[in-house]
């Protein structure tokens, strides 16, 4: 029959189409992201608390002047092992806008631990005015909001370099190996020794970038550890239950044969 002869070439054609699935996206240019072994990436992994705490120090010393963390309260840092007095000190170092008071005026006061982290600028216009027209994004969800996640953010932080010969960088922008288009508005945020860690770890650019990414990964999903812990239990239960139901099913159907 004629139709039978048509099937093979048709199937081959379609399979060729499926084969293209395996071919990588032909983007204008492939950017190789660094591949870091993160403390939190495996199915049973937790955030490295020491790295995350150092990462918070990087954030306060190098990031917070331009980038907010609007979904985090000072309280939530307790999950990283800061005790109450440390949290109070961290909060008290920041000012928040409160009010109106009984005279109808807004006023500034030192932050309390129950406050959300205050934004670095009063509004978007102020942020752009202070940053050459660019808007520094909030970092609360940064690790979840970029393809490549932690590797991408690490790549950006460590990707500052001299522009290659013949690559014209527009005024006010900076060359970055990883950023799409290679021109980023953010000036190099980390340099060797610019951050000091209270635990004495030497603050190389890689170390600081690694630690702040660990902190931001926690900030993006503080429930990650609970999710994996609950997930492991749910899976253990379901696997046991599956075995039981399978055994029942086999016994029942065996009666029929």
């Amino acid at each position: 029959m004629r139709a039978r002869r048509m099937i093979r070439p048709l199937a081959a054609l379609m399979l060729a189409g499926v084969g293209l699935w395996l071919a990588p996206v032909r983007a204008a240019e492939e950017i190789e992201l660094p591949r870091i072994k993160w403390s939190f990436s495996g199915p049973f992994d937790r955030f490295d608390r020491n790295a995350a705490r150092r990462g918070f120090e990087v954030y306060t010393q190098a990031c917070q002047f331009c980038h907010g963390l609007r979904f985090l309260s000072f309280n939530s840092l307790a999950a990283l092992g800061f005790d109450e007095s440390e949290l109070s000190a961290i909060a008290a170092a920041r000012e928040v806008l409160d009010g109106p008071n009984d005279d109808g005026d807004m006023f500034k006061r030192p932050a309390r631990v129950s406050d959300r982290m205050p934004p670095p600028f009063a509004n978007e216009k102020a942020a752009r005015a202070a940053n050459n027209g660019a808007l520094p994004p909030d970092l609360s969800l940064m690790i979840k909001a970029r393809n490549g996640g932690p590797d991408y953010v690490f790549g950006i932080l460590t990707g500052y370099d001299k522009a290659p010969q013949g690559f014209a960088v527009a005024p006010g922008l900076n060359y970055n190996r990883v950023f799409p288009g290679h021109q980023i508005a953010m000036p190099r945020p980390l340099s060797a020794g610019a951050v000091t860690f209270t635990d004495g770890t030497p603050a190389s650019v890689e170390q600081a970038a690694h630690d702040v990414v660990t902190f931001l990964a926690w900030a993006s999903e503080p429930t990650l550890e609970e999710r994996k812990r609950v997930g492991t239990r749910v899976l253990l239960f379901l696997l046991t239950f599956a075995a039981l139901v399978f055994a029942i099913q086999q016994r029942l159907w065996a009666r029929l044969h």
């Binding site: 029959m1 139709a3 039978r4 099937i7 048709l10 199937a11 379609m14 399979l15 189409g17 499926v18 293209l20 699935w21």
Partner: peptide
């Protein structure tokens, strides 16, 4: 024969 065409359809949908 329909069986063959069915799998071509699957391949087309995946493509």
């Amino acid at each position: 024969i329909y069986r063959g065409f069915f799998w071509v359809l699957i391949a087309a949908i995946v493509a």
